[in-house]
């Protein structure tokens, strides 16, 4: 098992320098003016960064209010009778609720749960699967649609939320099946 951890470490260390090296070397091989091409592409970076600011402020402030006010805890208590029906321990609810809202928040929740229950407990494993299979849906929506000034998001949000729900339910089911 240590071999797998080591392999993952190697892959995550090599991936970015490897990709940069490969693209630049391949470009040079194909006689692309790599420096000029890079600068031309990189120019757009600033505009995109600035363009997403209003969307990101709107999204993060609303999520920030929701989190700081303690609404997450209240919601966890309110829906725990329903979620216990699918074999979901109440302790993992904050994780499922936080995952689509905030990446750093979810990482914090996961670390806290693992500290309390242990990484190899059923609850610890379940939140690990949730963290690994989920995504910060609202951040992605704000940034991606914001970069092209789209505010009418049509069916992207409901479909994204269904995908999040499926990911949580499957994580709970698989964790119970494999580790329970």
């Amino acid at each position: 098992m240590n071999a797998i951890v080591a392999l993952i470490e190697v892959v995550s260390v090599i991936a970015i320098p490897g990709l940069v090296l490969f693209v630049v070397a391949y470009g040079a091989f194909k006689r692309v003016k790599i420096y000029e091409a890079f600068v031309e592409g990189a120019k757009e970076g600033f505009n995109v960064g600035v363009k997403i600011i209003p969307y990101l402020v709107a999204m993060l402030v609303a999520i920030g209010i929701f989190r700081a006010g303690g609404a997450m805890e209240l919601l966890s208590v309110a829906i725990s009778p329903i979620t216990s029906l699918i074999g979901m321990p109440a302790e993992t609810l904050p994780m499922a609720l936080m995952r689509p809202l905030s990446g750093s928040g979810a990482l914090g929740v996961m670390s806290e749960i693992i500290k309390v229950h242990g990484a190899d407990s059923l609850i610890g494993r379940m939140v690990s699967v949730m963290m690994g299979s989920g995504e910060t849906t609202f951040y992605v929506i704000a940034v991606y649609f914001g970069s092209v000034a789209v505010s009418k998001t049509r069916h992207a949000v409901p479909a994204g939320l269904v995908a999040d729900l499926v990911s949580v339910v499957t994580s709970v089911w698989l964790a119970n099946l494999i580790f329970g």
């Binding site: 391949y26 091989f29 003016k33 790599i34 091409a37 970076g45 600033f46 995109v48």
Partner: peptide, 23 residues
Amino acid sequence: AIGLIGIMALWLGIMKVAEQAGL
């Protein structure tokens, strides 16, 4: 958003190289 600018610039630059090389 500001932190994203540098990373955006980097990858958009690499992407342009990959594009022109036909990758």
